[in-house]
């Protein structure tokens, strides 16, 4: 059940890249980004009303903690631009490379609340295999 849901989640992520990409092709990259966030916000508000959660907490935390959504805007814009010329698979492959490298950097210095995990040279092997896969995808 749990494993099935994890697999299902991966399907959702890929579908999302496609759907947001199609929306961007119809309405423009930035307008569609507004729409994606608007529809998402409506969905989460409905879910919170259903779960009877309060929308705004009583306590206010440092502004930096609320920037996740702002960074997420960049994700949507970047993905939309990439999808238009690369398609779903190559966009995903390159995104996974970006995720791997960024995670390594965050872990190395224990940034953003992550536990400090020093870099292991062996991981370069994994990164090289990922790079090889991307080269095959893009240039063959």
């Amino acid at each position: 059940m749990t494993k099935g849901l994890a697999l299902f989640n991966g399907i959702l992520y890929s579908l999302m890249i496609l759907m947001n990409g199609l929306l961007a092709e119809s309405y423009g990259n930035y307008y569609s980004t507004v729409l994606v966030h608007l529809f998402g916000l409506i969905a989460i508000i409905l879910y919170m009303l259903f779960k009877k959660k309060r929308l705004f907490p009583k306590e206010v935390f440092p502004l930096l903690l609320y920037t996740g959504g702002a960074i997420g805007v960049l994700t949507v814009v970047f993905n939309n631009v990439a999808f238009s010329s690369l398609g779903v698979t190559a966009t995903l492959g390159l995104g996974l490379l970006g995720q791997s490298i960024t995670s390594l950097v965050i872990d190395q210095w224990g940034l953003l609340g992550a536990e400090k995990t020093p870099f292991k040279k062996k991981k370069l092997i994994g990164i090289c295999i990922i790079l090889a896969g991307i080269a095959v995808m893009l240039f063959l």
Partner: peptide, 23 residues
């Protein structure tokens, strides 16, 4: 250029996920 954007999308996913997890 598009290749760079796709890689950066991965960077912003991880960054935003970590910030959201802190919140």
């Amino acid at each position: 250029m598009h290749i760079l954007f796709a890689i950066l999308a991965g960077t912003t996913i991880v960054t935003s996920r970590n910030v959201n997890a802190m919140l």
